[in-house]
Design a protein around this nucleic acid. Structure first.
Length: 333
DNA sequence: AACGCTGACAACCGCACAGAA
DNA sequence: GTTCTGTGCGGTTGTCAGCGT
């Protein structure tokens, strides 16, 4: 079966020979790739354009970094994957010289197994639920009691640390305001993520009762942390009575009403758009709350829905004012 | 030596999307 | 508005080296 994109031509498949690599490198470095579909013809290759593009992007580009991943790169992949899921191309943008294919392969061959051995679901990064764990441990017949005891410990759900890297800088800003989102912010309430706080694992609640990311992680319990006037109104979680996370969400943008200051039909349209997004957020959050087992203990917190956070992150990146600097965050276990 | 298994990496496939015609 | 084409992406499969039996 031939490629759909080049069905008329006879194309070679399989691994690339050094001669083919040479032809492609020479062509692209001297003429640029232009339209990839025309590259095979001009470069004298019996490959389809798609194959040429892939070979160049994943293997031949001069800026590619070869060799095994460092522990720092591994941590970045884990952190970004926790936010974005299997968006390998987006994840790869955080690793200069690495390709989406490389990241994907590394994830599937190494990181996935590592997380699973730690009792973590590689898709959600949550603890694998107790019944799944017991099933898994039955399978392995108690072969790894050390890791089992590890995952039974109470652990922080996440920390807030580093968001700007998560937001695709190429996302078009479709909304612009001059005012900061949170103005005249008062010192926020700081609460531990869990009942038994360990170092630097806190969420911050601002005076509008929304949970927000901060540049500086506060010291519990006597923090006087200030949220700057440009702090985010993103919300990444609520705490129930036992300080366990039971829902994730985002504070609908406070900027929307203030944008009424803006003039012109375009601005009004943008306000409507933001309001619609706000309604959608609320609807999603309500659904998320309904779907979750609020009474779940921390050990069963695997119902924490990061896909929701992902959605909010994406959405927020599209409605950020241009002069808005978001506090950084990462999710750390 | 032959065979099978496994992991790492390379490449392919099908789909979605954007822009042009 | 529809169709076509090119591109990008994520999932899947193929290839091969290394290792153990």
């Amino acid at each position: 079966m031939g490629h759909r994109c080049c069905g008329k031509h006879k194309v070679k498949r399989g691994l690339w020979s050094p001669e083919e690599d040479d032809k492609l490198i020479k062509h692209v470095t001297t003429h640029g790739h232009g339209s990839w579909s025309s590259v095979p013809r001009h470069a004298g290759l019996e490959r389809c354009g798609k194959s040429c593009r892939l070979r160049w992007i994943n293997y031949l580009r001069p800026e590619l970094k070869r060799g095994s991943f460092t522990s720092e790169e591994e941590q970045i992949i884990i952190d970004v994957h926790r936010i974005l899921g299997n968006r390998w191309a987006q994840i790869a943008k955080h690793l200069p010289g690495r390709t989406d294919n490389e990241v994907k392969n590394f994830w599937n061959s190494c990181i996935k197994k590592k997380l699973m051995s730690q009792g973590l679901d590689p898709q959600t990064h949550n603890l694998i639920s107790s019944h799944k764990r017991s099933a898994a441990s039955n399978k392995t017949a108690g072969s790894n009691t050390k890791s089992q005891s590890h995952i039974d410990q109470k652990r922080p759900v996440f920390t807030v640390n580093n968001i700007s890297q998560m937001i695709d800088s190429s996302t078009e800003i479709n909304y612009s305001i001059s005012q900061p989102i949170v103005s005249n912010a008062q010192p926020p309430t700081v609460q531990p993520i869990m009942a038994e706080p360990t170092d630097n694992q806190y969420l911050v609640q601002n005076p509008n009762s929304c949970w927000t990311s901060v540049t500086d992680i506060p010291t519990f319990p006597d923090s006087t942390l200030n949220i700057s006037s440009t702090s985010s109104s993103l919300v990444f979680g609520h705490l129930d009575d036992s300080n366990c996370i039971w829902a994730a969400g985002a504070e609908p943008f406070e900027a929307a009403p203030r944008a009424m200051d803006l003039q012109g039909e375009q601005s009004k349209g943008q306000v409507v758009q933001v309001q619609q997004e706000k309604d959608k957020l609320l609807e999603m959050e309500m659904k998320a709350i309904q779907d979750m087992d609020i009474a779940a203990s921390f050990d069963q917190s695997s119902s924490f829905d990061f896909s929701l956070v992902e959605y909010y992150s994406t959405l927020m990146s599209g409605v950020m004012p241009q002069d808005y600097s978001v506090a950084d965050f990462t999710w750390n276990f």
